[in-house]
Design a protein around this nucleic acid. Structure first.
Length: 419
DNA sequence: CAAGAAAGGAACACGGGGAC
DNA sequence: GTCCCCGTGTTCCTTTCTTG
């Protein structure tokens, strides 16, 4: 009936025992990995246990030691509470060159991941750089023999006294319990300790927190509840676990841009040269030569840093190229209700067009801008030619005479394919 | 300069409270 | 009740600080 069912079929891959691969967009109710893989015929429910849970990062050791390896740790510990048998995977999706030799921080982090039965993919590592810790002493020795941070920083250190294990680490950041790298690092350290020792008391010291920073919905509090860990001098509140680990995504502007992205790449000669579907995901711009270059964040860094936020570089959610029509399309995704804000944001793309698109693509390409919508609305409501596509919440695909030809071609071919 | 740690920041989801 | 503002929380980086 020409409606989208919010399910993507993967075509072109065949595999014994796997007749069909389907993709759905879901969201987590708290700390949540990027992908879940189910192997079954029926549509998965949150109560059912997935085969794989995959977390992806693009941050390299060279860019940031602690963020690169610790920050995602909490997710795996959190996942274990819901799906203890799911295979956990950390995928390094490095699109730029990483360090030749991993730092100690990186090795320590990798070893904690594998100690927690997380498989590491996408990184070429020597065995000794990711093998599991042998025992608690091995873990403690490794961390405590690492170089100390500069004065004023709290080193991550583990001290074992009889039936008590003290772990130091700062958790306070900008007014709350929000120190991401250390939330991840301490989750992994505590969970690793628990693999070897289920009896000793674990206390976190030098955290910098006050009682009012401990709230019952904080993910770190969740981990403390789960692993029976104390925060020195404070009372750890009881965590309210969400009943379900995830739910099907039904709102959110990204549904529209993801849809057009996938349909264009699969049903036309067009393809993406930049995408930023998830808010803070790191994105790369693809040049005509096929190189991936990271985008700058400011049009004028000094002015931005001295307080003028107008110098942040505005980036579209998606940039598509149409080799047939020689068009490059800058796309802003919005919900139907926010469509006018989307039209407004189109005005902000002068900088990226001048500094990136025009520099890296020949002048034969005409650059156009378009808003892609998702949500509750009707195609007949739209009279603004800035809007190029609408995916409605009940799966209707709406285009208009003024829509970019790439969109028209994509939708036509999609409909013909499923006819 | 490299490494360990901390801080700065953008984007978005969500829930509460007030306005209508 | 519905709509919208606003603060809180989460995620994912990006950059900075300091010293061996």
């Amino acid at each position: 009936n020409n409606r989208f069912t919010f399910e993507y079929d993967v075509i072109g891959i065949t595999c014994n025992n796997v007749p069909k691969i389907k993709i759905r967009i879901i969201s987590g109710n708290s700390s949540f990995v990027d992908y879940l893989v189910y192997f079954q015929e029926k549509l998965p429910k949150p109560e059912e246990e997935p085969l794989y849970a995959i977390e992806v990062t693009k941050t390299t050791d060279g860019e940031s030691r602690n963020t690169g390896v610790y920050q995602r740790g909490t997710k795996f510990v959190f996942l274990d509470r819901y799906y203890p048998n799911t295979k956990k995977i950390m995928l390094y999706d490095n699109q730029i060159e990483d360090n030749k030799e991993p730092t100690d921080t990186n090795i320590f982090g990798n070893k904690m991941l594998t100690t927690n039965n997380v498989s590491i993919l996408g990184k070429e590592l020597k065995m000794e750089h990711y093998s599991k810790f042998k025992d608690l002493d091995d873990l403690i020795r490794h961390k405590n023999s690492m170089r100390r941070p500069p004065k004023g920083n709290v080193p991550l250190l583990i001290k074992k006294e009889k039936d008590l294990i003290k772990v130091s680490g700062r958790l306070f950041k900008s007014g709350s319990l929000a120190h991401d790298p250390n939330i991840g690092a301490l989750s992994l350290i505590m969970s690793s300790i628990r693999k070897f020792d289920n009896k000793s008391k674990i206390i976190i010291t030098q955290h910098g927190l006050k009682q009012n920073h401990l709230t019952s919905r904080n993910k770190f509090i969740a981990i403390c509840n789960l692993l029976n860990v104390e925060i020195e001098g404070l009372q750890v509140p009881k965590y309210n676990w969400p009943k379900k680990y995830w739910h099907y995504e039904e709102k959110g502007e990204k549904l529209g841009t993801i849809f057009i992205h996938i349909v264009v790449e699969n049903f036309t000669k067009g393809y993406s040269i930049f995408d930023n579907h998830a808010g803070s995901e790191k994105g790369y711009f693809v040049t005509s030569a096929g190189d991936m270059i990271p985008l700058q964040k400011y049009t004028n860094r000094d002015k931005y840093k001295s307080g003028d936020k107008d110098y942040a570089m505005r980036i579209p959610d998606l940039i598509l190229i149409d080799p047939n029509q020689n068009e490059i399309i800058n796309i802003e995704g919005k919900t139907f209700d926010n469509r006018f804000a989307g039209i407004n944001e189109l005005k902000d793309y002068d900088f990226i067009e001048k500094e990136y698109i025009k520099k890296h693509y020949s002048s034969k390409y005409k650059i156009i801008r378009s808003v892609v919508l998702y949500g509750k609305g009707n195609g007949t409501d739209i009279t603004e030619t800035e809007i190029g596509f609408l995916l409605t919440n009940d799966g209707k695909l709406e285009i208009w005479v003024w829509s970019p030809s790439l969109f028209k071609e994509a939708i036509k071919n999609l409909k013909d394919f499923w006819r």
